[in-house]
């Protein structure tokens, strides 16, 4: 089935009688990539679900303010990214368990409970999780969402040079994590 274009979605959203239909089509097209973009940044589904719902509520309320000089997906990803960063920053203050302690427990569980392939995936997930926020964000957008540096730059409003540096650092850190944990 051919996917509906952003222009068709925006045309429907401009018509008050077609607004809900347009919004449902927008969600149908973007809910999964936006969800995964958020989910890779936060640990569990419940948090990702809250953030993705807040993101689309903001989209629903603010679509009239969307200037069509940027692309629709850029605008959606920007809202989702801001919502996620706000959530992470708010939760950082609440966290009582130290990161080292948490990592130690999780690594032990990974070693004991998983098969080899699962263990590699869990380590990969863990290696990404412990990256600094910006490197994690850039790595996910480049590696999983397969965005160009130009697209990431438009969403995060960061220079392409800085994004390349973040991605390279992230890749090297993940590689190092595997080397230290004996998987390479």
């Amino acid at each position: 089935m051919k996917q509906i274009s952003d222009k068709d979605i925006l045309d429907l959203l401009e018509n008050p009688t077609q607004y809900e239909k347009g919004f449902r089509l927008l969600m149908e097209k973007y809910q999964e990539p936006i969800y995964w973009h958020i989910r890779r940044m936060v640990k569990n589904h419940e948090d990702a679900n809250d953030i993705v719902q807040n993101t689309f509520i903001k989209v629903y309320k603010g679509i009239n303010k969307f200037k069509q000089n940027s692309k629709l997906y850029t605008w959606l990803y920007r809202i989702a990214t801001n919502e996620t960063i706000t959530f992470i920053n708010r939760n950082k203050k609440r966290k009582s368990t130290s990161i080292d302690e948490e990592n130690g427990i999780e690594n032990k569980l990974i070693a004991e409970e998983y098969s080899d392939s699962q263990r590699i995936l869990e380590h990969f997930k863990k290696a990404i999780e412990i990256l600094p926020e910006r490197q994690k964000l850039v790595f996910n957008m480049r590696y999983y969402d397969e965005m160009t540096y130009k697209q990431i730059s438009e969403i995060l409003e960061i220079s392409i040079g800085s994004l390349k540096a973040s991605y390279h650092h992230a890749v090297k850190k993940i590689e190092k994590y595997f080397a230290v944990n004996g998987q390479q």
Binding site: R24, Q31, Y35, R39, H45, Y60, I120, V171, I174, E175
Partner: peptide, 26 residues
């Protein structure tokens, strides 16, 4: 090394989650 790693989403999502998401938002 990273290029050879399987590129799969290693997270669970509830069954039919995306089917009902737009209703929940609306």
């Amino acid at each position: 090394f990273l290029l050879d790693l399987p590129k799969t989403e290693n997270y669970d999502v509830p069954f039919n989650y995306f089917e009902s998401l737009s209703d929940k938002v609306l």
